[in-house]
């Protein structure tokens, strides 16, 4: 499974959707993920890739982690992995 597929699978599971319903353009809202679902998805991504995602549910915009779309989340995780490797 590629990184893309893995993240999409995690998000799809939390949103109770088929992986085919989750696209790069999908937003958290369009997938129907509530704040708790989002927190669980972030935790699952952290566990899967052994990274720490800076996310505060009180102020997601200030978390410094772009969660505007699935594509943005994938890019951000790639960034964290690159930082970790460096």
């Amino acid at each position: 499974m590629t990184l893309h597929e893995k993240i999409i699978a995690i998000i799809a599971e939390q949103a109770v959707l088929d992986v085919s319903d989750v696209t790069m353009d999908s937003t958290v809202e369009s997938l129907g993920l509530d704040s708790l679902g989002l927190v669980e998805a972030i935790f699952a991504i952290e566990e899967a890739f052994d990274v720490s995602i800076p996310f505060n549910a009180n102020d997601p915009a200030q978390s410094g982690f772009d969660m505007s779309s699935v594509g943005a989340i994938i890019t951000a995780v790639e960034g964290l992995l690159a930082q970790k490797a460096a």
Binding site: V39, I42, F43, A57
Partner: peptide
């Protein structure tokens, strides 16, 4: 006790 609360991502 604190670690558990951290998990919820609601702490400042």
């Amino acid at each position: 006790g604190i670690k558990a609360w951290e998990g919820l991502r609601v702490m400042s």
